[in-house]
């Protein structure tokens, strides 16, 4: 017993080493799994591992392209790396047609290390679980566009329960007063995200910091994704971007409503008492008060 307390027994036993190894293995597995979940939630909208390029590059064997320290640093702050003039980071931005990888919430040195490890492990597999989603490549029809329009406007609700696109986004010529402007104009998003595959990946798992919390439990379903892709492909073909006249119209309608409101209040209190006792005021003015 004393040996056990002083630790002598441990030194002579294999048990602690086995325990340590098991703990290490479990710990590594857990970190890998966490990195996997993290990757799924934050990265798959722009990256695959072995599935080809989306908005961002295919990450298969990324460890052989750049060293670990660079990757860990880049993962934590892509924009800072680009701003610092790093040549490779700048090249990545150009390849992504100017799209800058956003800072990812929850990214820290440990998480970045775990991600690099996970990507390296997944790269060795014949087919990674992150090889990308399969989206139909059938030609998109007018019916798809019409359905995409309904989904965008919210007339057909997203089956996952997410909010309609129009809440925050606009597309040129879609409706009377346009769509929302909290998020970017999506008229040419089909071009920005480099076509059907990139756009579909983004829609399946929106990773921008504003959309991620809203859609994390309300994923857009594949058939809805396809309809939206059809709508955006069509809008990109038409080109341009939504103008801001709809904002002015909205403001003017609001002002009109306010004026009507004030007129109604005046009418409602038509017989109101309009001043202090005027006779007393006049008396005061005449110096009699």
């Amino acid at each position: 017993m004393l040996d056990w307390i002083t630790g002598k027994g441990f030194r002579n036993s294999l048990t602690p080493r086995v325990c340590a190894m098991v703990a290490l293995l479990i710990g590594t597995a857990a970190a890998q799994q966490d990195a996997g979940t993290f990757f799924k939630q934050n990265c798959t909208s722009c990256h695959t591992i072995g599935g080809g390029r989306l908005t961002g590059p295919d990450l298969k064997d990324v460890g052989s392209r750049r060293d670990r320290a660079w990757l860990v640093q880049f993962l934590q702050s892509p924009k800072a790396m680009i701003d610092s003039g790093d040549l490779y980071a700048t090249k990545l931005q150009q390849e992504a047609r100017g799209v800058v990888m956003p800072n990812i919430a929850g990214m820290n040195p440990q998480q970045a290390q775990a991600l690099v490890d996970m990507i390296s492990t997944e790269s060795k597999l014949p087919r990674s679980q992150f090889a990308g989603m399969q989206i139909s490549d059938r030609p998109l029809t007018d019916q798809d566009i019409a359905k995409g329009r309904l989904v965008f406007l919210g007339e057909q609700q997203l089956s996952g329960g997410g909010p309609a696109c129009i809440s925050c986004h606009t597309v040129k010529g879609l409706t009377l007063l346009g769509g929302g402007r909290l998020g970017p104009d999506l008229t040419r998003v089909y071009e920005r995200l480099q076509g059907r595959k990139g756009l579909a990946a983004w829609l399946s798992s929106p990773a921008s910091p504003t959309m991620a919390p809203v859609f994390k439990d309300h994923a857009i379903q594949p058939e809805e994704v396809l309809s939206l892709v059809a709508l955006f492909e069509d809008s990109a073909k038409r080109g341009g971007q939504d103008d801001t006249t709809s904002l002015l119209n909205f403001f003017l309608l609001g002002v009109g409503g306010m004026v009507l409101g004030l007129i109604s209040l005046d009418a409602l209190w038509k017989t109101r008492f309009r001043g202090v006792r005027r006779s007393m005021v006049h008396k005061n003015d005449r110096g009699e008060g």
Binding site: S167, L176, L177, F250, G254
Partner: peptide
């Protein structure tokens, strides 16, 4: 959100809200 699921209804709600806010 259900009310706003028709663009016209969304616009009506927004215009009324803006009018009251300006007021």
């Amino acid at each position: 959100l259900l009310w706003n699921s028709r663009p016209l209804r969304l616009y009506v709600l927004e215009i009324f809200s803006l009018a009251f806010a300006l007021m």
